[in-house]
């Protein structure tokens, strides 16, 4: 069958499992600079399914697309180390404060410029928002069918892909023609590790902005090895209505943020000593909570 052009959407996210007090800015948006940045976990599952598809269909190419600040180029390098062929960093101050609708618009316009393509993969959701909205919204804007919660590529034939989906209660196998957008569930296989050869090949891959800080020697190498260039696109590289971007293009507003404060409740403090446990169990049996 003919080679496929595959795009993977990936996001660099703050590691929400380790959040400090300075994580939020006064306007209610996230202060990403204060947190460790990681490759969104389900986007790694998406990358794995995309790599499997690339392995299955000879001659296919895989481009990883991420939107974010300059340091999000790290996500693209991670993708290159694991088997992606190209990367595009979409970065512009005008994207700041985008909600899912404004984000999906910017991504859709970027993907449209990358035509032709056959499959767009994305993680089901990102751990900083847990919304699961960007994938379906990108699909809608590109007028693509969507397959959400993918767990496994069951089969791929010319112009047809079969995907097993993980649902709340059970599983489903669906088919779709190309082009299609697929969001990937965490139950899909873990992403393969970095490949040592690819790590050597791409460790100096950089965006235009990153190259500015490099020495002359490096620039010479860079000139001769075009694969080291990570594409960096801004608003000027895509066709967009700027009013539909960023905070201004986002219909949802954060009205209020409350840090989580627990309502303290009078609780009885116990130790694991026999008398405490026996007293507790006795009470529970007597008031018919158990038994």
């Amino acid at each position: 069958m003919k080679a496929l052009k595959i795009i993977v959407l990936a996001k660099q996210v703050p590691d929400t499992r380790n959040v400090g007090k300075d994580a939020m800015k006064a306007d209610g948006t996230v202060n990403r600079a204060a947190l460790a940045a990681i490759f969104n976990p389900e986007d790694l599952n998406a990358l794995e399914l995309a790599l499997q598809l690339k392995d299955q269909v000879k001659g296919s190419s895989l481009t990883i697309l991420t939107m974010g600040p300059g340091r999000a180029a790290e996500v693209i390098r991670e993708g290159l180390y694991r088997g992606a062929d190209h990367g595009i960093l979409l970065t512009d101050r005008k994207f700041a404060g985008s909600d899912t609708l404004a984000t999906s618009y910017a991504l859709a316009q970027t993907i449209d410029k990358m035509k032709p393509y056959d499959v767009v993969f994305a993680g089901r959701q990102a751990i900083d928002g847990d919304t699961a909205q960007v994938g379906p919204q990108v699909a809608e804007k590109l007028n693509l069918p969507q397959i959400t919660y993918a767990e496994e590529i069951v089969n791929v034939k010319s112009n047809e892909i079969l995907i097993k989906r993980r649902l709340d209660r059970g599983v489903e196998v669906v088919s779709s023609s190309f082009p299609v957008l697929i969001t990937v569930h965490s139950s899909a296989p873990d992403c393969r590790p970095r490949n040592a050869k690819l790590l050597m090949k791409y460790k100096h891959a950089k965006t235009v902005t990153e190259i500015q800080d490099m020495s002359e020697d490096y620039l010479d190498i860079f000139q001769n090895r075009s694969y080291l260039k990570i594409e960096e696109w801004s608003v000027n590289d895509i066709v967009v209505d700027e009013e539909a971007l960023g905070l201004g293009g986002s219909p949802t507003k954060v009205k209020k943020i409350e840090n989580v404060v627990f309502k303290a409740k009078e609780s009885k403090k116990l130790t694991p000593l026999d008398e405490d446990i026996d007293m507790l169990m006795k009470e529970l049996i007597e008031n018919h909570t158990i038994g």
């Binding site: 009885k268 130790t271 169990m281």
Partner: peptide
């Protein structure tokens, strides 16, 4: 613990077997 009615500060490996033991002995 702030929303708990009972807080047992200790290891589950110690606590749970004691709960099981008491319950087995004292429930019908």
């Amino acid at each position: 613990n702030q929303i708990a009615d009972y807080v047992i500060t200790g290891d589950i490996a110690v606590t749970i077997p004691k709960m099981i033991k008491y319950y087995k002995k004292n429930s019908k």
